[in-house]
Structure formats: C-alpha cells, structure tokens
C-alpha cells in the first residue's frame, strides 16, 4: 500500500508517496492514522488529518486495500 502526500504532510515525510510496510497489517483508516502518528510525531500537531480513498473523504472505520488510491489530506486552505 502506498499513500499520496500533499502540502505539509509531504514536507513532514520528505517525499510524495509513502509506502506502508505490509507487515504493519494496516487495514483501516484509523490504523493508518495511528501508525502515521507513531512514525511521524509532527503529524499529531496538525489541526486535522483526514484520509481520502479514491478521491472521497473516508471515515475512521473504512477499510483500506492496495487497490484504492489513498491520500493524506492535511487542513485545506484553498480559495
């Protein structure tokens, strides 16, 4: 599984795509957020951190798999 990164999350990780090791056995949005917070403590200080699956906002208990496009959405500031 690979996560697309944008804005400040791309800067925190230092790359545009973050591979999630299979042995972490991450299968839900909530588990992904927990793992990210452990790997990158700077993510915990953001105002919010959402996950998108196939270009739609996902809920914490939504299931993730390698076939979807998964992205981290830090607080938006368009307009």
């Amino acid at each position: 599984m690979e996560i697309l990164l944008f804005g400040i999350t791309r800067e925190i990780v230092g790359k545009q795509k973050l591979p999630v090791p299979a042995d972490q056995n991450i299968t839900t949005v909530k588990a992904l957020k927990t793992w990210l917070g452990q790997q990158y403590p700077a993510m915990q200080s953001l105002s919010s951190l959402l996950v998108a699956v196939d270009s739609e906002y996902a809920q914490d208990d939504d299931v993730l798999n390698g076939e979807n496009e998964i992205a981290l959405i830090p607080p938006v500031s368009g307009g």
């Binding site: 944008f6 804005g7 400040i8 906002y57 830090p74 938006v76 500031s77 307009g79």
Partner: peptide, 9 residues
C-alpha cells in the same frame, strides 16, 4: 470550496 476542496496554500 474552502471547506472541502483539497488545495493547500
């Protein structure tokens, strides 16, 4: 747009 569209400044 400002609430939901994933664009960052």
């Amino acid at each position: 747009l400002k609430k939901t569209v994933p664009i960052w400044k």
